[in-house]
Design a protein around this nucleic acid. Structure first.
Lengths: 126, 126
DNA sequence: ATCAGCAGTTAGGGGAATCTAACTATATAG
DNA sequence: CTATATAGTTAGATTCCCCTAACTGCTGAT
């Protein structure tokens, strides 16, 4: 499977965060969350659908497939780690940390994420 | 002045790192360093030139203007801070830290860079 | 002084992501 | 049950960045 673009990773993450137990996500909400038009969000859905990451029936809610969910969870997890590291260790403002995490999550290595996680963990033990 | 794209920031940084006292940078070297074709590098030079960040006379070496140098130095500085933080504080492998820094430097906030710098600094004093 | 080889340029095209504008479908309020 | 508001879709244009292919300019070895 070829790598997702950062943009598509973001769309996937948005769908993940917008859908709750049993319910899917809506185009308008995705578009709003990512600050793009509905048209853009809609066309992104075609891409994700072709890659088998979401189920997207016309005029229906959007659902993650198992592999889509897995990917989204992974991105979301990275986001969390960065966010926590930046706020708790670096004492960066939460809003800024969130913005930074949103960008960094798509480009950082797994090694560095792991190192941040370890750092936080070690800190907590003391 | 409108913000540079990440791509252009990378080109600028490459020029900065390839030019040494008095000498400019060459298209081929820039292209090689960024793993793009000479054609791509060449067209990027037009963009940077239009923005007044480089001097680019046909068939001549490429030089940074003062404002181009300032921007490049800023990006480079961010790279350094991230690299140092990742290797010295997080104990991430240098090669990986470098790759991460190269991507993160274009998206991270100044606040977070400053926080990393402070963290390193505090660490050294002990 | 020539020319082969390298450096640089130009033209043309493609993919990704965005937008606006105009359209169609759905759902709800009365 | 129908009209209207909201949601979703489609078409077409734009911008950015990349590519290949074909060209032109430069320069150093002979």
């Amino acid at each position: 499977m070829e790598k997702l673009t950062f943009t598509m990773e973001n769309y996937l993450e948005a769908i993940y965060e917008l859908s709750s137990d049993g319910n899917g996500a809506r185009i308008s909400d995705i578009a709003e969350r990512l600050s793009v038009t509905k048209a853009s969000a809609n066309s992104a859905m075609s891409t994700l659908s072709e890659k088998g990451l979401i189920i997207n029936e016309k005029y229906k809610e959007i659902f993650l497939t198992p592999s889509g969910r897995e990917l989204a969870e992974f991105t979301s997890k990275k986001h969390q780690v960065i966010q926590e590291f930046f706020t708790k260790i670096l004492k960066v403002d939460a809003v800024i940390a969130n913005r930074d995490a949103c960008a960094i999550e798509h480009v950082i290595s797994n090694d560095s994420i792991y190192a941040m996680q370890e750092f936080i963990h070690r800190r907590k033990k003391r």
